[in-house]
């Protein structure tokens, strides 16, 4: 199956691209996608554990299964801001 990976902000700059297409074996989950990204793009591997993951616009856990055509976004920490 093939999923679209989206990068934003710091991760996008370090990756040098806003998106990737990733081929995964059937039954793959978010954790497998993250491990594959880390292997393909070691320059962002250290940042991946700090990112939240959204699949099809909703935040998900690492154990969430993926389906062909899913959009997986890596969400770096947001700016927060002093109150």
């Amino acid at each position: 199956m093939r999923v679209t990976i989206l990068y934003f902000a710091n991760l996008r700059e370090r990756r040098g691209a806003a998106s990737d297409l990733l081929d995964l074996p059937p039954g793959g989950d978010v954790a497998m996608a993250l491990a594959t990204i880390a292997k393909l793009h070691p320059g962002i591997a250290a940042q991946l554990p700090h990112a939240q993951v959204a699949v099809n616009l909703a935040l998900v856990a690492a154990t969430t299964p993926l389906s062909d055509g899913d959009e997986l976004a890596l969400i770096p920490p947001v700016s927060g801001g002093a109150s």
């Binding site: 710091n10 959204a54 976004a73 920490p77 947001v78 927060g80 801001g81």
Partner: peptide, 27 residues
Amino acid sequence: IDRLKQRAPIWKKEIGESGAAWIEDCC
């Protein structure tokens, strides 16, 4: 505004005279 700052997937990068930085974590 408080919940937006915590949850909206929106990032900012400061561009200054002495450099640039993505603002992460929070404060």
